[in-house]
Amino acid sequence: MPVITYRQALNDALAEELERDENVVVMGEEVAEYNGAYKITEGLWKRFGDKRVVDTPISEAGFIGLGVGAAMMGLRPVMELMFWSFAYVAYDQIINNAGCVRYMSGGLINCPLVIRGPANGGTNVGATHSHTPENFLANTPGLKVVSPATPYDAKGLMKAAIRDNDPVCVMENTLLYGDQGEVPEGEYIIPIGVADIKREGTDVSLIAHGRAVLTALAAAHRLHEEFNISAEVVDLRSIRPLDQETVLNSVRKTHRAVLVDENKPFCGVSAQIASMIQEHVFDDLDAPVQRVCSLDAPAIYSPPLEALQLPTADRIIQKVLAIS
């Protein structure tokens, strides 16, 4: 099976969907002539032209709103945010318009819009560029939120997002763009709302999404090597809809859960998962549910410290050992 980067997997997904459906239009800052600030859209403008791949001015509220209006009319805009942190200036458009228009119209309208871009800390760009708003977005019924951790998932989820008839927020990660992984050449889709067991285990469930999945996998490897603890790693892949059963089944099996989340702890995605676990499988638990989140402060610039602010394998291992 070919090995390609996460970046290439996203690029392939966009190219295939542009090819497949003439209503797909890719839009955002620097996506066309510049080939993408992070080169996710590299080559697409040259291949598909001005109509299908469109550079926007720096007007997130304006162009995201334009995408919502165009989606209501049946186009399938794929809007790039250079950083998901910039979504905050377009919040009204994302929450009130993309998220609520179907409900407020009593189901007369749907909004097949994709908003995508990186949402991560860890790149030493300070607090304003390091937000992880998947928890905020998933708090809005009407929006869907996915967070792929691997090239394979990135391609399959991006294609599913573009074909979905509801607005989907795709949370990528600049630290993953260069990661490599196996991606089949043929067509495939990963359904939104289906989690994936990235590593089987029996002693504790590490439940994560996005890059935290890789941190959890690193921790699981060391737990096995150094402590003979078998950790299962559950990759949520999709935050909303959420594959509750896969999460609960894992906890039923291992009886312990450590949630790994690059969100801040207060009302982060892991807070929802923790609530769900205690509500549904409390009697299966042999220990309190633990969380490893980003440390609860704005993202610090200082490079060695920011590395500590995100969840680390060391912190995960400490939590696991504390409940084992």
């Binding site: 509220a61 709103g65 334009l66 995408g67 209006g69 165009a70 209501m72 009319m73 009204d92 009130n96």
Partner: peptide, 16 residues
């Protein structure tokens, strides 16, 4: 809030 939506509706008309 509707000002870019109107824009997007018109954009879609032109696109089509």
């Amino acid at each position: 809030g509707q000002t870019p939506l109107g824009l997007g509706i018109a954009y879609a008309l032109k696109y089509k």
